[in-house]
Amino acid sequence: MSRNGRGFEPRIVGFLCNWCSYSGADLAGVSRMKSAPNLRIIRVMCSGRVDPSFILRAFQLGADGVLVAGCHPGDCHYQEGNAKALRRVLLLKRMLRDFGIDEHRLRLEWISAAEGERFAAVSTEFTEQLRALGPLVLARRAEVA
């Protein structure tokens, strides 16, 4: 479904950690930086808060890609929250592969509060990547009965 007539517009869910990536996004905004609007941001206190269930739930609700963004290693406001996120995402990517979902649809990025440019670049690039992958069609639930 293309809303602005430019073909498939991927829907991306972004879990941004409050201290780094969320501020980075804010900085990008404040600095009037251009970036793809496809990213739907959900603020969490730390990337460690992102439960794999949320990611699966996002895909199940029709997201074409999920971005989890946290602080650079060592910069985490809670010292090691981002490390836990890294562990979960690595295992989850392996499971997504078994579920037949391209693991590139799930992306983990480190974006500090100062990297407004980087945030803009990541979200734009991710959007183009998903546009190439096309929509994620999962078996509709009502298929059986």
């Binding site: 794999p52 269930s53 699966l56 490390a83 836990k84 562990r87 979960r88 295992l91």
Partner: peptide
């Protein structure tokens, strides 16, 4: 809600390493 996701989260969280 989803047993697999929760179990995965628990097991992944107790892995003692920060290096990919």
């Amino acid at each position: 809600r989803d047993f697999g996701a929760k179990a995965l989260s628990a097991i992944a969280s107790v892995i003692d390493s920060n290096d990919e």
